[in-house]
Structure formats: structure tokens, C-alpha cells
């Protein structure tokens, strides 16, 4: 069981790293998907640990949420590319503090 949890934490860390370090907007979105996948794995692991269905049901609904979020994210990337020409976070220069 601990092995699966370690896998989940590792995937989550790698995904978080991708969001923080990468500048390609598509890759950042894909990294977020990896993070969500890690969370779903944790849900399934705990569901197995307790022998209850709750974790798996939450996992199913979380998959739906991840898919919806990515649709909006990709729509925004398309709108951004339409304005700026490339899906690159370094091209985000209109807003600064």
C-alpha cells in the first residue's frame, strides 16, 4: 500500500514541478493532468485500504472534473495563441506588478 502512495506522491511532485518550471502552456496543462491523476490514484489506494467504494466513486467524479477543466484550459490556450501567436507563458507580458 505504501508503495502505491509513494507512486502517487512522486507523480504529484513531478507534475507540480512541470507546472512551475515549464513555460509551454500546453505542457503546463498536461502537468496539471499528471497531478490530478496522482490524486485519483491516492483515492483508489485508500478506497482499497478501507475496502469501501467511496474512494472509487470520488475518483470517477474527479476524472470528469479533470476532463472539464482541461477543456476550458485548452480553449483559453487557443484564444491566447490567437492573440499572441504562440502558447508560451513568457509571451504573457501585458500584466505586471
Amino acid at each position: 500500500m505504501s508503495g502505491y502512495l509513494a507512486l502517487s506522491l512522486a507523480l504529484f511532485s513531478i507534475g507540480a514541478l512541470g507546472v512551475v518550471l515549464r513555460r509551454n502552456l500546453l505542457v503546463m496543462l498536461i502537468s496539471i493532468e499528471v497531478m490530478l491523476n496522482a490524486a485519483i490514484l491516492a483515492l483508489v489506494v485508500f478506497s482499497r485500504m478501507y475496502g469501501s467504494v467511496d474512494g472509487r466513486v470520488m475518483g470517477i467524479l474527479a476524472i470528469a472534473v479533470a476532463a472539464g477543466e482541461v477543456a476550458v484550459g485548452l480553449a483559453l490556450v487557443i484564444a491566447f495563441v490567437r492573440l499572441r501567436g504562440r502558447p508560451d507563458a513568457t509571451a504573457m507580458d501585458l500584466l505586471k506588478w
Binding site: L7, A10, L11, I14, G15, L17, G18, L21, R22, V27, I30, S31, V34
Partner: peptide
Amino acid sequence: GAIAGALVVV
């Protein structure tokens, strides 16, 4: 395999 895939992503 899953970790390798994630590393490929990053």
C-alpha cells in the same frame, strides 16, 4: 512506467 511517462511530460 507511470513515473517515466510523467518525467517525459516534464
